[in-house]
Design a protein around this nucleic acid. Structure first.
Length: 230
DNA sequence: GCATTAACACAGA
DNA sequence: TCTGTGTTAATGC
C-alpha cells in the first residue's frame, strides 16, 4: 500500500463503529485463556464467533513440515469465522487464543443469517470484512513473491499504521502494538528480522518504539524504505 | 548472500 | 517473574 492510501485510510476510518457490541449483546458469552483453541480447522461449527475482548490468531498447521502458518490476528470488535457462511459450516482456520484472556459471543448461524438479511449495515460489514480479508491475503502473497523480508516488514508497518494508527501532529502512533513475533508472522519473516529492521528504522529516526507503542515519525520516509533494496 | 534458527543475555511491564 | 527484545554464531537454501 502506498503512503497516500495509508493516510487516506487514517482520515476516513469510521469513528463510531457500526455497533456490533449492542447488536450481539444478548447472545451467550464464552471465555478462554491463552493457548486455548476455540475451534479446529475443518471442524463443523454452528456459530459465528464475535470477539469482545482479547486477541485470537487464525492458523493452519502443516504436519508434514511441522510448521504453523499464521493467517491473521483478530482483535476486539471482529467476527472471526465468517468463512463458515460459504462452506457448509466448516471452518477453514484453527482459532487460538494469544492474549491472557479472551471473551467472545457465540451467535447461532441461523440467527446470524436472519440478522444479515434484515440489517443492511450488518450485511455490508460482513461483505466488507470478507473482501478485506481476501485483499489482504492477496497482498501478502504478492509481497512474498516480489519483496525481500526487510521490505515486507516495512510494508507491513505502513499498512498497520493505516489500520490502527492515530495521528498526532505530523506523527502516527500505534498503541499496544503487536509483538515483533506477531509482526513477523504477518509479514512472513522471523521475529529477529523484525527486531533488526525496526531498530534500523529507529536509528534513522523514521520510527520510535517501546513495548507499549510504535511512533511513525516520518511516514513518507517509511514509504521510501518500503521499496528500497538492501 | 540473504534469511532463518538457535542460543543466550537482559530488561521492562 | 516471565515475556519480549537485542544480538550473534551457526546453518540452510
Amino acid at each position: 500500500m502506498n503512503v497516500s492510501i495509508a493516510i487516506e485510510k487514517l482520515d476516513n476510518r469510521r469513528t463510531g463503529p457500526f455497533s456490533l457490541n449492542s447488536l450481539f449483546a444478548d447472545f451467550p458469552e464464552r471465555k478462554a485463556r491463552k493457548g486455548d483453541t476455540l475451534v479446529q480447522r475443518n471442524h463443523s461449527l454452528g456459530y459465528i464467533f464475535y470477539l469482545t475482548e482479547g486477541m485470537v490468531k487464525s492458523i493452519n498447521f502443516y504436519k508434514e513440515k511441522n510448521k504453523e502458518i499464521v493467517k491473521g490476528y483478530f482483535t476486539a470488535g471482529e467476527m472471526m469465522n465468517l468463512d463458515i457462511l460459504n462452506k457448509n459450516l466448516e471452518v477453514s482456520d484453527t482459532l487460538k487464543v494469544t492474549s491472557a484472556k479472551v471473551v467472545y459471543k457465540i451467535i447461532p448461524i441461523k440467527e446470524f443469517k436472519a440478522m444479515v438479511r434484515q440489517n443492511q449495515g450488518l450485511n455490508q460489514l460482513v461483505m466488507a470484512t470478507i473482501l478485506d480479508k481476501l485483499n489482504k491475503d492477496n497482498d501478502r502473497l504478492h509481497r512474498l513473491l516480489l519483496y525481500k523480508s526487510r521490505q515486507r516488514v516495512v510494508q507491513f508497518l505502513i499498512d498497520y499504521v493505516g489500520e490502527v494508527g492515530q495521528r498526532v501532529g505530523y506523527e502516527h502512533v500505534i498503541k499496544k502494538p503487536f509483538t515483533h513475533e506477531e509482526m513477523g508472522n504477518l509479514s512472513d519473516t522471523s521475529r529477529q528480522t523484525v527486531t533488526t529492521v525496526l531498530n534500523e528504522l529507529k536509528a534513522k529516526n523514521i520510527i520510535h518504539f517501546t513495548r507499549r507503542y510504535i511512533v511513525i515519525r516520518n511516514l513518507e520516509a517509511l514509504a521510501v524504505e518500503a521499496t528500497k533494496e538492501g
